[in-house]
């Protein structure tokens, strides 16, 4: 039971982070492509903006690993 709850917790941590990242990246990506058509030289900066939300899923991943590593 406890292991199951831990697995659900870990899944939620990474899953919700991934969903949030996806929503943010979808919006940034769409706007970024629009900007790129006008100014192709912005590729580097747009790439940075695009990967910024990935921190959310990485932090979720860290939490998931920590949850699953708690000694039982």
């Amino acid at each position: 039971m406890e292991l199951g709850l831990m697995a659900i917790g870990a899944g939620l941590a990474i899953g919700l982070g991934a969903i949030a990242t996806a929503i943010a990246q979808a919006k940034i990506g769409a706007a970024g492509i629009g900007a790129l058509i006008e100014k192709p030289e912005l590729l580097g900066r747009i790439l940075i903006l695009l990967v910024i939300p990935e921190t959310l899923v990485i932090l979720g991943f860290v939490i998931a690993v920590i949850i699953l590593s708690v000694p039982r």
């Binding site: 990935e54 921190t55 990485i58 932090l59 991943f61 860290v62």
Partner: peptide, 8 residues
């Protein structure tokens, strides 16, 4: 903490 991605 973002560097955790290296391991991830």
């Amino acid at each position: 903490l973002s560097y955790a991605r290296i391991m991830g």
